[in-house]
Design a protein around this nucleic acid. Sequence first.
RNA 1: GGGCGCUUAGCUCAGCCGGUCCAGAGCGCCGCCCUUACAAGGCGGAGGUCGGAGGUUCGAAUCCUCCAGCGCCCACCA
Length: 895
Amino acid sequence: MTDRTDQLDTRYDPTEIEGRLYRRWLEAGYFHADASKADDPYVVVIPPPNVTAALHMGHGLNDTIQDVLVRWRRMQGRETLWLPGTDHAGIATQNVVERQLAEEGLTRWDLGREAFVERVWAWVDEYGSRIIEQLEAIGCSCDWERTRFTLDEGLSRAVREVFVRLYEKGLVYRGQYIINWCPRCGTALSNEEAEHREQAGKLWHIAYPLEDDPSRTVVVATTRPETMLGDTGLAVHPDDERYADLVGRTAILPLVGRRLPIVADEHVDPEFGSGVVKVTPAHDPNDFEIGRRHELETVDVMTDGARMSDAVPEPFRGLDRFEARDAVVAALEEEGRLVRTEEHVHSVGRCYRCGTVVEPRLSLQWFVKMEPLARPALRAYREGELDFHPERYGQIYEHWLENIRDWCISRQLWWGHRIPVWYCRDEACGREVVAREDPDACPDCDGPLDQDPDVLDTWFSSWLWPFSTLGWPEETEDLETFYPTDTLVTGADILFFWVARMVMAGLEFMDDLPFTDVVLNGTVRDHQGRRMSKSLGNGIDPLEVVDRFGADALRFTLIRGAALGTDLQLNHEDLGAAFQVGRNFANKIWNAARFALPHLDADGGGGEPELELADRWILSRMSSTVESTTAALDAFRMHEVASSVYEFVWGEFCDWYLELVKGRLAGERGEESRRAAAWTLRRVTEGWLRLLHPVMPFISEALYLRLPDVAPDATLVLGPWPDPDDFPSDRPAEEAVAELQELVVALRNARSEYNIDPGRELEVHLASISDGLARALGSEDEGLRRLARVDRIERDGARGERAGAHAVLRSGTEVFVPLADVIDLDRERARIEEELERVEGLLRASRRKLENEDFLTKAPEEVVEREREKERSLEEQKEHLSRKRDVLSGAGGSS
RNA sequence: GGGCGCUUAGCUCAGCCGGUCCAGAGCGCCGCCCUUACAAGGCGGAGGUCGGAGGUUCGAAUCCUCCAGCGCCCACCA
């Protein structure tokens, strides 16, 4: 690494720097958390990406936010653990490998269970670490030594322990209920895994004849006519007088001929449709309940693949359910049973993995009883122990928990945690064994046992993530030290799947919340507002962005757009446009440092020199920036973290401070002044490099290492994080420089307005100079000359002159620049008039307020005082502007 | 059916538990500038009745009500 800054290119090239620094950090072990040293640790667990995943922008955003928080806390000196890992993602991963097999013309059944699972493991071994490596490319400071996988031995033991404990507590049970069945994936799903979408469909009205009076029919309506083949009853509301005489009688199911008892049930809405409901207990959750209350039969009319089963009349057997729908409708029509058909919009559930329409279906599955687990999770939230950012997600969490339903956890897959339940092969014995260790034989009859063939829902391992990854159920040092964690950063789409369930598991098994703050980041969308997705082809590959613009540019752009709870739009068709904010900022920083570094003194310049106004000003601004940046981090307002550093570095440090001190650094004002500037520059540069480090870790570290008095093995990674008190606050200096800036802008404005040659030096006459400006001129005379290209500054002069540019600053200071050769008096007068009008308008508004008795009595004193000051300032501006107008309109004026 | 969010400059968005906002940023646009850190830059500028209508208040982009458009979540809509 070289300190020869004169060799640095004017364009920042991140490629070589980033890889080298990341390797250094890894080798130094900075990201590894030491449990023995952690008395106040800061802990984050990563939302484990699927092992099948390739890094996409959603990860980019989510993981960068985590890295910013983690790096900040680490810099603050807390022993910080960011625990990484991946999720085995049952359905998704199984699908990937099954698709591979399909290309070879095979199915998993051809391989058999054992060989198939081996094959998935082989896939995971080969590709499973890919996403982890990609996280390194964007700079994530995870503790890679603690990387976990949800199918690890340790995590598997945790899963099993939890299943057994819940079973023993009576919270896990097996039963026949209506679940969501995905016919493509061939498995049951939880309620959360069925995504409901509104869809245009039809409502078919069908006439069912009565058994004892076939001339009389009752009309029922359905959106899924194929399921009528499984009807086993009809229901009406008990108070519905229209049908009171039907209750207890029997109808005949068209096409099938089955006898259907007509029952009275509260669930029926007499207002909807005809007020008569067909009851299909095996294919509808409500019908199932009605059927159970009235002891109706259940007839499952479909196979696992959603074809019509042998339970239906011959002509329909083997038909796909949607073919069967058409066939049933046609047959009904032929028999004259179809009364009418209407268009109907209703919501249809689809598998969240493959999009196939799910079939509500009666099935024997394992469930977790959720209400007892939800109660403490609700209490913790209501008592304020759990905070959501943004807050509104708390209400969504609360609502879901209040209405929680039991969780179907068995999946008819092969890839996942096998359900630890064995059944005695002897039906007469019927013993069911649930055990932590695999049993050899039936404890009752000593006969052979068969393990339940199903695996557990992937989320049944994910919900244990905050403690299973730390060693639970073993009482490890890690668990003792790092649980509970602090902040969870994730997407709102898995609030129920994951976040709420982790809270429940944490409280149930650790007796403590798994985290105290939940940050929900937004969705990354394209420039048309569409979610980025593979199928739309509108995704952006974060690694391509890293290659082209650097990880820092990627991170800065993401963080700057990550306003709390809002989505982020990025143009996938023009990466340059999308990421130039970050790229340009990195370049700006690079060049600012390129300029500053050679001016810094190797020994830090000895003791503290006599600081000048500009020095005190930038130090004071630095102090404010430390404060605002820290406050933003503390409140998870990521975009404010980025923008507060950005504005300071670019808008204050580069645009003003560097320009103000250029002359001094060149020695124009003597050694003491040079030393003061160099000393300040050194401190401020380091200050903002530290503030920048969480968001842009690479460039900040690279530049930090180039500071003249920094050891080659030093690092920003371990902090310290700056404190506002490290930099003296200086209000008067801030005010003075603010007025100087206003003057500079006014002069530049005049120059631009009249198209004055940029090289031409101006002569400036000032009158009614404010105290602040007087102070600024006293010490920054040369700064003014440099910033506004001024060669002569006169005080209290040229009040009566007309041919030039006129201005009045907010402080009331009058500015005049003689420009007889270029000035157009009419135009100048118009300019002043316009300004005068604006000021008068403001003054009127201000006076209106101050004349209002209510304002004076009801508004806080400081607000009134501020308004008075504003009035005074406006009065002065008005007076001085009027004077200028009079001068410009004076005798001999052109109009 | 219930709930929530959004609507601010041409575009993308900050600000929003009221006064420091004389409403900001980035991009885009217009003009000038290759001024020895940076043209991935500098300087100046134009551009907004803060979705609409009421209301509360001394004071509203910010709070309340209603309306319109967009989006999201939940729900046993046969």
